[in-house]
Design a protein around this nucleic acid. Sequence first.
DNA 1: CTTGACAATGCAACTAAGTTGCGTTTATAT
DNA 2: ATATAAACGCAACTTAGTTGCATTGTCAAG
Lengths: 139, 139
Amino acid sequence: MNNLNGILSQLKTKGYRLTPVRKSIIEVLLKNPSPLSINDLISQLKSKKLSPNKTTFYREISFLKDLRIVQEVEFGDGKKRYEISKSHHHHIVCIKCNMVKDVQMEKDLLIKEQEILKKMGFKSVNHSLEFFGLCSKCQ
Amino acid sequence: MNNLNGILSQLKTKGYRLTPVRKSIIEVLLKNPSPLSINDLISQLKSKKLSPNKTTFYREISFLKDLRIVQEVEFGDGKKRYEISKSHHHHIVCIKCNMVKDVQMEKDLLIKEQEILKKMGFKSVNHSLEFFGLCSKCQ
DNA sequence: CTTGACAATGCAACTAAGTTGCGTTTATAT
DNA sequence: ATATAAACGCAACTTAGTTGCATTGTCAAG
Protein backbone atom coordinates (compact mmCIF):
# COMPACT_ATOMS: atom_id res chain seq x y z
CA MET A 1 0.00 0.00 0.00
CA ASN A 2 2.09 2.90 -1.17
CA ASN A 3 -0.50 5.00 -2.98
CA LEU A 4 -2.91 7.53 -1.51
CA ASN A 5 -6.18 5.76 -2.21
CA GLY A 6 -4.84 2.47 -0.95
CA ILE A 7 -3.77 3.96 2.34
CA LEU A 8 -6.99 5.92 2.76
CA SER A 9 -9.23 2.93 2.18
CA GLN A 10 -7.08 0.88 4.56
CA LEU A 11 -7.71 3.52 7.23
CA LYS A 12 -11.41 3.71 6.49
CA THR A 13 -12.00 -0.03 6.71
CA LYS A 14 -10.26 -0.02 10.10
CA GLY A 15 -12.70 2.60 11.31
CA TYR A 16 -10.43 5.66 11.35
CA ARG A 17 -11.48 9.04 10.01
CA LEU A 18 -10.29 10.68 6.84
CA THR A 19 -9.68 14.23 8.04
CA PRO A 20 -8.12 16.96 5.88
CA VAL A 21 -5.00 17.00 8.08
CA ARG A 22 -4.56 13.25 7.93
CA LYS A 23 -5.02 13.15 4.17
CA SER A 24 -2.61 16.03 3.61
CA ILE A 25 0.13 14.57 5.81
CA ILE A 26 -0.08 11.27 3.93
CA GLU A 27 -0.09 13.10 0.57
CA VAL A 28 2.96 15.16 1.49
CA LEU A 29 4.87 12.12 2.72
CA LEU A 30 3.94 10.19 -0.42
CA LYS A 31 5.21 12.79 -2.84
CA ASN A 32 8.41 13.62 -0.96
CA PRO A 33 11.53 11.64 -1.85
CA SER A 34 13.27 12.31 1.51
CA PRO A 35 12.17 11.62 5.07
CA LEU A 36 10.56 14.72 6.62
CA SER A 37 10.84 16.15 10.13
CA ILE A 38 7.82 17.48 12.00
CA ASN A 39 8.85 21.03 11.07
CA ASP A 40 9.19 20.01 7.43
CA LEU A 41 5.65 18.69 7.61
CA ILE A 42 4.36 21.83 9.30
CA SER A 43 5.74 24.08 6.58
CA GLN A 44 4.58 21.78 3.78
CA LEU A 45 1.04 21.77 5.16
CA LYS A 46 1.13 25.56 5.41
CA SER A 47 1.50 25.80 1.65
CA LYS A 48 -1.68 23.73 1.49
CA LYS A 49 -3.41 26.34 3.68
CA LEU A 50 -3.51 24.02 6.68
CA SER A 51 -1.99 25.02 10.04
CA PRO A 52 -2.72 22.32 12.58
CA ASN A 53 -1.21 22.51 16.04
CA LYS A 54 2.16 20.79 16.47
CA THR A 55 0.55 18.37 18.94
CA THR A 56 -1.69 17.21 16.13
CA PHE A 57 1.35 16.50 13.96
CA TYR A 58 3.07 14.48 16.66
CA ARG A 59 -0.10 12.54 17.37
CA GLU A 60 -0.86 11.91 13.72
CA ILE A 61 2.67 10.68 13.04
CA SER A 62 2.54 8.43 16.07
CA PHE A 63 -0.78 7.06 14.82
CA LEU A 64 0.58 6.38 11.33
CA LYS A 65 3.67 4.75 12.84
CA ASP A 66 1.56 2.43 14.98
CA LEU A 67 -0.27 1.33 11.84
CA ARG A 68 3.10 0.80 10.07
CA ILE A 69 2.08 3.30 7.40
CA VAL A 70 5.09 5.51 8.16
CA GLN A 71 8.55 4.68 9.44
CA GLU A 72 10.87 6.70 11.63
CA VAL A 73 14.34 7.58 10.36
CA GLU A 74 17.25 8.80 12.51
CA PHE A 75 20.04 10.94 11.12
CA GLY A 76 21.42 11.74 14.55
CA ASP A 77 20.78 15.47 14.52
CA GLY A 78 18.18 15.41 17.27
CA LYS A 79 15.20 15.43 14.95
CA LYS A 80 13.18 12.41 14.01
CA ARG A 81 12.14 12.11 10.38
CA TYR A 82 9.36 10.15 8.75
CA GLU A 83 8.71 8.51 5.42
CA ILE A 84 6.04 6.24 3.98
CA SER A 85 6.98 2.64 4.79
CA LYS A 86 8.75 0.84 2.01
CA SER A 87 10.89 -2.27 1.68
CA HIS A 88 14.07 -2.46 3.75
CA HIS A 89 16.53 0.22 2.73
CA HIS A 90 18.96 2.80 4.09
CA HIS A 91 19.81 6.41 3.31
CA ILE A 92 22.79 8.46 2.35
CA VAL A 93 22.69 12.08 3.45
CA CYS A 94 24.82 14.85 1.97
CA ILE A 95 26.47 16.62 4.89
CA LYS A 96 26.48 19.89 2.95
CA CYS A 97 23.13 20.25 1.16
CA ASN A 98 21.22 17.64 3.25
CA MET A 99 20.00 15.87 0.12
CA VAL A 100 18.92 12.31 0.90
CA LYS A 101 19.02 9.27 -1.36
CA ASP A 102 17.84 5.75 -0.71
CA VAL A 103 20.47 3.00 -0.57
CA GLN A 104 19.74 -0.67 -1.23
CA MET A 105 22.02 -3.04 0.65
CA GLU A 106 22.81 -6.47 -0.66
CA LYS A 107 21.24 -9.37 1.17
CA ASP A 108 24.42 -11.35 1.79
CA LEU A 109 25.73 -8.49 3.90
CA LEU A 110 22.66 -8.66 6.10
CA ILE A 111 22.97 -12.42 6.45
CA LYS A 112 26.58 -12.08 7.63
CA GLU A 113 25.50 -9.50 10.15
CA GLN A 114 22.84 -11.80 11.55
CA GLU A 115 25.39 -14.61 11.93
CA ILE A 116 27.75 -12.42 13.90
CA LEU A 117 25.00 -11.30 16.24
CA LYS A 118 23.64 -14.80 16.74
CA LYS A 119 27.10 -15.86 17.88
CA MET A 120 26.90 -13.10 20.48
CA GLY A 121 23.62 -14.56 21.76
CA PHE A 122 21.27 -11.86 20.56
CA LYS A 123 17.82 -12.47 19.07
CA SER A 124 15.22 -10.56 17.00
CA VAL A 125 17.88 -8.18 15.84
CA ASN A 126 17.10 -4.99 14.03
CA HIS A 127 19.56 -2.41 12.82
CA SER A 128 19.90 1.19 11.78
CA LEU A 129 22.41 2.03 9.08
CA GLU A 130 22.73 5.50 7.64
CA PHE A 131 25.47 6.99 5.47
CA PHE A 132 26.82 10.54 5.46
CA GLY A 133 29.00 12.07 2.76
CA LEU A 134 29.30 14.65 0.02
CA CYS A 135 26.94 14.32 -2.94
CA SER A 136 28.17 14.77 -6.51
CA LYS A 137 27.12 18.44 -6.59
CA CYS A 138 28.71 19.41 -3.28
CA GLN A 139 32.18 17.92 -3.70
CA MET B 1 46.19 6.39 23.70
CA ASN B 2 43.54 4.46 25.59
CA ASN B 3 44.92 4.58 29.11
CA LEU B 4 44.53 7.33 31.68
CA ASN B 5 48.13 8.50 31.92
CA GLY B 6 48.56 8.54 28.18
CA ILE B 7 45.53 10.75 27.70
CA LEU B 8 46.47 13.06 30.55
CA SER B 9 50.01 13.63 29.30
CA GLN B 10 48.66 14.21 25.80
CA LEU B 11 46.43 16.95 27.21
CA LYS B 12 49.24 18.45 29.28
CA THR B 13 51.67 18.71 26.40
CA LYS B 14 49.00 20.49 24.37
CA GLY B 15 48.69 23.07 27.14
CA TYR B 16 45.35 22.02 28.62
CA ARG B 17 44.74 21.80 32.33
CA LEU B 18 44.29 18.64 34.34
CA THR B 19 41.34 19.53 36.54
CA PRO B 20 39.62 17.07 38.89
CA VAL B 21 36.48 17.11 36.75
CA ARG B 22 38.39 16.46 33.54
CA LYS B 23 40.36 13.62 35.07
CA SER B 24 37.27 12.01 36.58
CA ILE B 25 35.26 12.17 33.36
CA ILE B 26 38.08 10.48 31.47
CA GLU B 27 38.50 7.86 34.22
CA VAL B 28 34.79 7.06 34.22
CA LEU B 29 34.67 6.77 30.43
CA LEU B 30 37.75 4.56 30.43
CA LYS B 31 36.43 2.06 32.92
CA ASN B 32 32.91 1.88 31.49
CA PRO B 33 32.26 -0.76 28.84
CA SER B 34 29.21 1.05 27.36
CA PRO B 35 28.84 4.54 25.94
CA LEU B 36 27.52 6.95 28.59
CA SER B 37 25.00 9.78 28.31
CA ILE B 38 25.54 13.12 30.02
CA ASN B 39 23.18 12.04 32.80
CA ASP B 40 25.10 8.79 33.20
CA LEU B 41 28.26 10.84 33.61
CA ILE B 42 26.63 13.20 36.10
CA SER B 43 25.54 10.34 38.35
CA GLN B 44 28.87 8.53 38.05
CA LEU B 45 30.75 11.66 39.08
CA LYS B 46 28.41 12.10 42.04
CA SER B 47 29.61 8.82 43.48
CA LYS B 48 33.10 10.32 43.26
CA LYS B 49 31.87 13.31 45.33
CA LEU B 50 31.98 15.64 42.34
CA SER B 51 28.92 17.61 41.24
CA PRO B 52 29.89 19.92 38.39
CA ASN B 53 27.26 21.94 36.57
CA LYS B 54 25.69 20.25 33.54
CA THR B 55 27.13 23.01 31.33
CA THR B 56 30.58 21.85 32.42
CA PHE B 57 29.79 18.32 31.33
CA TYR B 58 28.58 19.42 27.91
CA ARG B 59 31.61 21.64 27.43
CA GLU B 60 34.06 19.02 28.63
CA ILE B 61 32.59 16.38 26.35
CA SER B 62 32.67 18.77 23.41
CA PHE B 63 36.31 19.52 24.22
CA LEU B 64 37.25 15.84 24.39
CA LYS B 65 35.37 15.21 21.15
CA ASP B 66 37.28 17.99 19.36
CA LEU B 67 40.53 16.34 20.43
CA ARG B 68 39.23 12.96 19.19
CA ILE B 69 39.65 11.53 22.69
CA VAL B 70 35.97 10.63 22.88
CA GLN B 71 33.48 9.64 20.21
CA GLU B 72 29.75 10.29 20.03
CA VAL B 73 27.38 7.36 19.70
CA GLU B 74 23.72 7.57 18.63
CA PHE B 75 21.14 5.00 19.67
CA GLY B 76 18.25 7.09 18.41
CA ASP B 77 16.55 7.70 21.75
CA GLY B 78 17.21 11.43 21.80
CA LYS B 79 20.30 11.20 24.01
CA LYS B 80 23.85 11.36 22.79
CA ARG B 81 26.29 8.95 24.36
CA TYR B 82 30.06 9.03 24.58
CA GLU B 83 32.89 6.55 24.78
CA ILE B 84 36.67 6.71 24.64
CA SER B 85 37.72 6.59 20.97
CA LYS B 86 38.70 3.17 19.78
CA SER B 87 39.13 1.44 16.43
CA HIS B 88 36.12 1.35 14.10
CA HIS B 89 33.32 -0.68 15.62
CA HIS B 90 29.57 -0.76 16.13
CA HIS B 91 27.26 -1.62 19.01
CA ILE B 92 24.42 -3.93 19.75
CA VAL B 93 21.94 -2.70 22.34
CA CYS B 94 19.51 -4.92 24.24
CA ILE B 95 16.09 -3.32 23.86
CA LYS B 96 15.04 -4.71 27.25
CA CYS B 97 17.95 -4.21 29.68
CA ASN B 98 19.87 -1.63 27.62
CA MET B 99 23.09 -3.61 27.88
CA VAL B 100 25.54 -2.64 25.13
CA LYS B 101 28.18 -4.79 23.45
CA ASP B 102 30.74 -3.86 20.84
CA VAL B 103 30.39 -5.43 17.39
CA GLN B 104 33.28 -5.84 14.97
CA MET B 105 32.21 -5.75 11.34
CA GLU B 106 34.19 -7.54 8.68
CA LYS B 107 36.14 -5.35 6.31
CA ASP B 108 34.78 -6.78 3.08
CA LEU B 109 31.33 -5.61 4.05
CA LEU B 110 32.59 -2.07 4.40
CA ILE B 111 34.38 -2.22 1.06
CA LYS B 112 31.19 -3.31 -0.68
CA GLU B 113 29.35 -0.43 0.94
CA GLN B 114 31.89 2.05 -0.30
CA GLU B 115 31.59 0.71 -3.85
CA ILE B 116 27.83 1.13 -3.86
CA LEU B 117 28.10 4.70 -2.63
CA LYS B 118 30.82 5.63 -5.10
CA LYS B 119 28.51 4.51 -7.88
CA MET B 120 25.96 6.94 -6.52
CA GLY B 121 28.50 9.76 -6.80
CA PHE B 122 29.13 10.33 -3.09
CA LYS B 123 32.53 11.03 -1.54
CA SER B 124 34.17 10.97 1.91
CA VAL B 125 31.48 8.67 3.16
CA ASN B 126 30.98 7.88 6.78
CA HIS B 127 28.33 5.66 8.31
CA SER B 128 26.50 4.89 11.50
CA LEU B 129 25.44 1.33 12.13
CA GLU B 130 23.85 0.21 15.36
CA PHE B 131 22.02 -3.01 16.20
CA PHE B 132 19.08 -3.53 18.51
CA GLY B 133 17.83 -6.85 19.83
CA LEU B 134 17.33 -9.08 22.85
CA CYS B 135 20.44 -10.20 24.71
CA SER B 136 20.87 -13.80 25.91
CA LYS B 137 19.55 -12.99 29.39
CA CYS B 138 16.46 -11.10 28.24
CA GLN B 139 15.06 -13.52 25.66
C1' DC C 1 56.08 30.76 46.92
C1' DT C 2 53.68 34.14 44.82
C1' DT C 3 51.26 35.86 40.88
C1' DG C 4 49.18 36.79 36.32
C1' DA C 5 46.94 34.90 32.34
C1' DC C 6 43.63 32.40 30.56
C1' DA C 7 41.48 27.79 30.77
C1' DA C 8 37.80 25.98 33.20
C1' DT C 9 33.63 26.50 35.86
C1' DG C 10 29.01 28.11 37.67
C1' DC C 11 24.78 30.16 37.09
C1' DA C 12 20.72 31.75 35.03
C1' DA C 13 18.22 32.19 31.22
C1' DC C 14 17.20 30.37 26.89
C1' DT C 15 16.08 27.19 22.72
C1' DA C 16 14.16 23.23 20.39
C1' DA C 17 11.96 18.78 20.28
C1' DG C 18 8.61 16.40 22.04
C1' DT C 19 4.70 15.20 25.67
C1' DT C 20 0.43 15.48 28.60
C1' DG C 21 -4.12 16.70 30.32
C1' DC C 22 -8.25 18.35 29.32
C1' DG C 23 -11.87 20.57 27.09
C1' DT C 24 -13.86 21.30 22.27
C1' DT C 25 -14.78 20.17 17.52
C1' DT C 26 -15.92 17.18 13.70
C1' DA C 27 -16.30 12.91 10.65
C1' DT C 28 -19.22 9.38 10.01
C1' DA C 29 -22.50 5.39 11.00
C1' DT C 30 -27.24 4.96 12.19
C1' DA D 1 -30.56 15.00 11.93
C1' DT D 2 -27.87 13.30 15.64
C1' DA D 3 -24.94 10.74 18.82
C1' DT D 4 -20.39 9.31 19.71
C1' DA D 5 -15.83 8.55 19.66
C1' DA D 6 -11.96 10.03 16.93
C1' DA D 7 -9.45 14.00 16.05
C1' DC D 8 -7.99 18.51 17.35
C1' DG D 9 -6.37 22.91 19.91
C1' DC D 10 -4.31 25.01 23.60
C1' DA D 11 -1.49 25.75 27.48
C1' DA D 12 1.65 24.06 30.36
C1' DC D 13 5.27 20.95 30.96
C1' DT D 14 9.60 17.94 30.27
C1' DT D 15 14.13 16.90 28.70
C1' DA D 16 18.39 17.65 26.12
C1' DG D 17 21.31 20.85 25.02
C1' DT D 18 23.15 25.97 24.37
C1' DT D 19 24.72 30.79 25.35
C1' DG D 20 26.47 34.95 27.70
C1' DC D 21 28.79 36.57 31.25
C1' DA D 22 30.91 36.78 35.63
C1' DT D 23 33.98 34.04 38.71
C1' DT D 24 37.33 30.55 40.04
C1' DG D 25 41.35 27.67 39.69
C1' DT D 26 45.50 25.62 37.23
C1' DC D 27 50.00 26.12 36.29
C1' DA D 28 54.13 28.28 34.13
C1' DA D 29 57.20 32.10 34.76
C1' DG D 30 59.45 35.02 37.83
